[in-house]
């Protein structure tokens, strides 16, 4: 658990956690070793006619992410992340830093399957 992605519309740790995965505006990537953050835009996922979640999952895999914290993750995106070995944590925290604290305090459990029906 070194490269952690959060879904958000914002650009820093105080921003709100976006409950959507595939059509979230940005991914905030937290590097647990360097304790640094960077932003990846989810341009391709949002502009996909269909399969937004799959596209977003590909973006994260390509960015070398090993952990995802989001509200809900659909079945297709989950399948992609699962195959790539990315752990998915569903979280209802309001902001990214709250979600990060919950994750680091071990209060979240990794999802074993998608928690919602796909919607695209």
């Amino acid at each position: 658990m070194t490269t952690i992605a959060f879904t958000t519309a914002g650009h820093d740790l105080t921003a709100a956690l976006d409950p959507r995965f595939g059509r979230a505006a940005n991914f905030l990537i937290y590097d647990a070793v360097q304790k640094s953050i960077r932003i990846i835009e989810n341009q391709q996922g949002r502009s996909a006619a269909q399969g937004a979640g799959i596209q977003a999952a590909e973006t994260l895999v390509r960015a070398g992410v090993d952990t995802l914290v989001t509200g809900h993750c659909g079945p297709k995106a989950f399948k992609v992340l699962d195959v790539a070995g990315v752990k998915v944590f569903n979280c209802s925290a309001a902001t990214v830093d709250q979600a990060l604290n919950e994750l680091l305090a071990d209060r979240l459990t990794a999802a074993e399957r998608s928690d919602v029906e796909g919607h695209w």
Partner: peptide
């Protein structure tokens, strides 16, 4: 163009719905 097949690592995943 439709995310019907996705290459992840050393595998290719098929999504027949797409």
């Amino acid at each position: 163009q439709f995310r019907g097949i996705v290459a992840i690592g050393s595998r290719a995943l098929v999504f027949p719905e797409l």
